[in-house]
């Protein structure tokens, strides 16, 4: 699965990225975490508040830091 973390690089966004990586590690699966900090890319996807997280192209969290357990639950679906 492709996990995209959106954020310009503030503290919250870094925490979100860390949580996503932790979730991937816990899941044991082969998932890819990508950090997107380009404003144009974020804006064209319709993201209003950062940090945001998308799973396989679908935005799941926006404007708050999700815990690694929450992200793990998403990955497991």
């Amino acid at each position: 699965m492709l996990i995209e973390v959106f954020g310009p690089g503030c503290m919250k966004c870094q925490t979100m990225e860390k949580h996503a990586k932790e979730a991937v590690e816990k899941s044991g699966g082969d998932h890819q975490v990508v950090k997107i900090s380009d404003y144009a890319a974020m804006a064209s996807r319709g993201i209003l508040s950062t940090p945001a997280l998308a799973l396989d192209g679908q935005i799941k969290f926006q404007g708050r830091v999700a815990s690694s357990d929450e992200i793990l639950a998403l990955i497991k679906g």
């Binding site: 503030c10 919250k12 974020m42 804006a43 319709g46 993201i47 209003l48 508040s49 950062t50 404007g63």
Partner: peptide
């Protein structure tokens, strides 16, 4: 509304668009 200054740009574009 919650607001973090690092969200200012995406929010701005999203509103105007």
């Amino acid at each position: 509304t919650p607001f973090c200054s690092c969200s200012a740009v995406p929010l701005f574009i999203g509103f105007v668009k």
